[in-house]
Amino acid sequence: MKRIISCVFALAVMAVSPSAYAVQPDEIMSDPAKELRARDLSRELRCMVCQNQSIDDSEAPLARDLRLLVRERIAAGDSDAQVIDFLVARYGEFVLLKPRLNSHTWLLWLLPPLALAGGGFALWVNGRRRTKAGTSQDDALFALTADEETRLERLIAEPSPDKPV
């Protein structure tokens, strides 16, 4: 069997990408640039018979078929978007690990930023209410009470433990 050599890739930079591979030696394309594209695409496609695995991770026969299909389309000259469209046309949106924005998923994509904005807004409102509640910020918040003043004076009068006596 022909040995396939030199397939050491510096992986594409991603925030957190679990690097797990089930690509078989005989699947690898001869052109490293195309193979890299195939690998990147594979990581975004779901192995439909597995539990939450990309076809790049999975050892299932179906995942292998899909990997070969992706490479076939790339070899035929498809762009990344065309490959994705081809697979979605065949297998439905379920195959995408990163759902596309549409009427069913806009809420999914919108909720996380909304949660952040909502939390930030709630904090802002809360902060404003508090500032209004206190007459003047500096007086209410930061002025020392008489007790604290005397305590502070006593502390200042005491020798610091750090200074050599």
Partner: peptide
Amino acid sequence: DKISVGAPFFNLTFGPL
């Protein structure tokens, strides 16, 4: 409807936070 939400989604939304 069946959709998948996997690593690419979380990398995009969780990472920036």
